[in-house]
């Protein structure tokens, strides 16, 4: 119980620090967004004061002292109000994020979990059957595929599975002719469109989990408790799963937490290649168009989700490893 409270306190503290930093950073930078816009206009000639006033009014110039701004900011954050996007004016930032988030969460999130589960299982198998083809194949294959760059894998997948074999559509999250609803037809359309990006992420990320798990497990297989369990005549499946793998997975959980936290950031390159309307795609747009409110909201969301994922992994650790519970 104490463990839980301590971790929760730590989570709240770091979240507050992140939110505050997100408030401070833009204010510590020289100039305002209005200055940036005016500077752009100034390249074509002098900017008259009326235009300047109009731009400032449109983008909003902060009023009041820093403290009252901070209080107002905290209020806005708690209402998830991050202002209006420059690029997709007049849509609000929260609407944009809320539209993009589900696509990313479902597609990237599911694939991350699948990659972890599949990679871990293959790693356990490889270590347990060390030296056989069950070891060589996943280990060599994993090393090979994890060295592929995202975009290159994406191009291969698009070319062979999408263009030549025409098994799956090559871009977007759903077909142009279907409209979003909860019908079976639409959902299968979405799944069809998700195949290629998902496959790309899976191919490039599963190798790391295989190698990590295999190496950890080979270490634990050399541990005395595994030898002792064998000496006591436990079934080999029990020894492999409850003794060796159970201990080998612990260090991998931290990495899993980090990649889960990163899911919310989307998978920038993959979403870009497949025109997938997720958070990565949105982030790319925000950065290329200097859309400050959108960027700020996305970065904050990324930070917070990273913290949450780590918190969950900490709790999981507490459940799985009695040594951390004290």
């Amino acid at each position: 119980m104490w463990y839980l409270l301590r971790k929760l306190g730590l989570l709240l503290l770091t979240a507050w620090a992140a939110i505050t930093l997100n408030f401070l950073l833009p204010r510590l930078m020289p100039g305002t967004p209005a200055d940036a816009a005016i500077a752009k206009l100034a390249q074509n000639g002098p900017v008259d004061p009326a235009t300047r006033a109009a731009i400032e009014a449109q983008l909003g110039v902060p009023t009041g002292d820093a403290w009252s701004q901070y209080v107002q900011y905290l209020g806005n954050v708690s209402r998830l109000d991050f202002g209006v996007s420059y690029t997709f004016f007049p849509q609000s930032v929260s609407t944009l994020v809320m539209n993009a988030l589900p696509w990313t969460l479902v597609m990237v999130g599911l694939v991350t979990i699948i990659a972890f589960v599949v990679g871990t299982l293959l790693g356990v198998l490889a270590a347990w059957k060390r030296g056989t083809w069950l070891d060589t194949l996943p280990t060599l294959g994993g090393t090979f595929t994890s060295a592929f760059p995202y975009f290159w894998t994406a191009l291969l997948v698009v070319f062979f599975l999408g263009y030549q074999l025409k098994w799956f559509p090559t871009s977007g999250a759903y077909g142009l002719e279907s409209t979003p609803n909860l019908s079976l037809a639409f959902i299968s359309d979405v799944i069809g469109h998700a195949w290629l990006p998902a496959l790309t992420i899976l191919i490039t990320s599963v190798g790391g989990w295989i190698l990590g798990m295999r190496n950890n497990m080979i270490n634990t297989l050399g541990d005395d408790y595994v030898t002792f369990a064998e000496a006591n005549g436990l079934r080999s499946r029990t020894v492999a799963v409850k003794y060796a793998a159970r201990n080998a997975i612990l260090p991998n959980l931290t990495g899993f937490g980090l990649s889960l936290g990163g899911v919310v950031g989307g998978s920038l390159l993959v979403e870009q290649v497949f025109n997938y309307p997720g958070v990565g795609y949105l982030l790319y747009n925000a950065v290329t168009n200097q859309d400050f409110p959108l960027m700020q909201a996305l970065f904050l969301m990324l930070t917070i989700s990273m913290l949450l994922a780590n918190f969950l992994v900490d709790l999981l650790y507490g459940l799985l490893d009695p040594r951390t519970r004290r």
Binding site: D223, D224, Y225, T227, F228, K242, Y243, R246, N247, D321
Partner: peptide
Amino acid sequence: LQSGMNALNPVRS
């Protein structure tokens, strides 16, 4: 075993 300290699985009671 020699190192009875490590002969038990640390995550099992």
